[in-house]
Design a protein around this nucleic acid. Structure first.
Lengths: 154, 154
DNA sequence: AAGACAAAGGTCAAAGATGGTCAAAAGATA
DNA sequence: TATCTTTTGACCATCTTTGACCTTTGTCTT
């Protein structure tokens, strides 16, 4: 776990926690602080603060420009319906599905064990079919499991 | 004269013992340490740390990638291990998998919701691939989910 | 107001860092 | 010798890091 991206991720998350869900930062400043390429900040934002992980990013260029990160707090039921009806299309990657499951775990919609069961089923190794088919099966699986969760909700 | 694979096996086992059942290691680092081909590490993992022998392996590629080895709890999960290693073969029908899930629900190993999630994933409709492949995927899925259950058991 | 320049941030593809797979070669064993 | 196991290496898949080049906005000068 020596990845710089992970370290930057944790740093940003701690800042978000301190500022209660919303944060504004400057890309170049952060890049200088971590002695990395500015574009690495974009990479961290794209991979660790994606919508699937429950964040929203806005940015503003020009002098005085900045990046705003907002931790989203949506209604559980709406979010699950959004996932099954819109987000999960005909195909989905492992990374995306993994992010989504982590996200609903963090929102308290499912527990650790349910998340572990779902993630196990969604792994590439589990779905051992040609690549083009794999994403399609995974989308079906994730959707089916989410529907099961929705219908067992109390 | 002990074979290298045996030496590596013992080495890894001692690390697992030290870290109480769960270990993360880097393939290239280990290969360098033992001055062997990286793929020999895969060989050791495949032959000595298989599910049959009570281990679960997960790996992550890319910069900072690593391999996680989890020693499963053999004593308490006898029945589950029988399922993963013997009962579920290379292929399984929907009916069989559904019965197995119902069975572990009735034994109190999983709860209603976990059963619902698993059954949703195992349905024919979810695994929309040619019939001959379907049973194979289902076997992988059921096994993977059961392993997840074993390793999240407290 | 127009133009020039500075100060952000964005994109994308190449290079780097891991790990995986598979089959052939080498070695051990029956 | 025949067969089984181990070792190796060539080629593949995925994630991370870096850098060259682009776009947008603000400010200063004329």
């Amino acid at each position: 776990m020596a990845r710089l991206s992970d370290i930057i991720e944790e740093f940003i998350k701690s800042l978000i926690k301190q500022s209660e869900g919303e944060l504004e930062l400057q890309r170049n400043e952060l890049a200088e602080y971590f002695e990395c390429a500015p574009s690495q900040i974009n990479y961290v934002l794209a991979t660790r603060f994606s919508l699937d992980r429950g964040y929203h990013i806005e940015s503003f260029r020009g002098g005085g420009g900045f990046i705003r990160i907002v931790k989203l707090n949506l209604d559980e039921d709406d979010y699950l319906l959004y996932l099954t009806n819109e987000r999960i299309g005909v195909s989905i990657t492992w990374q995306e599905s993994d992010d989504i499951v982590t996200n609903i775990l963090e929102r308290g919609i499912i527990n650790e064990r349910e998340a572990a069961i779902m993630k196990a089923a969604l792994r590439d190794k589990t779905i051992a079919v040609p690549k083009n088919l794999r994403g399609v099966i995974r989308a079906n699986m994730l959707r089916a499991m989410l529907v099961a969760i929705i219908s067992t909700q109390v």
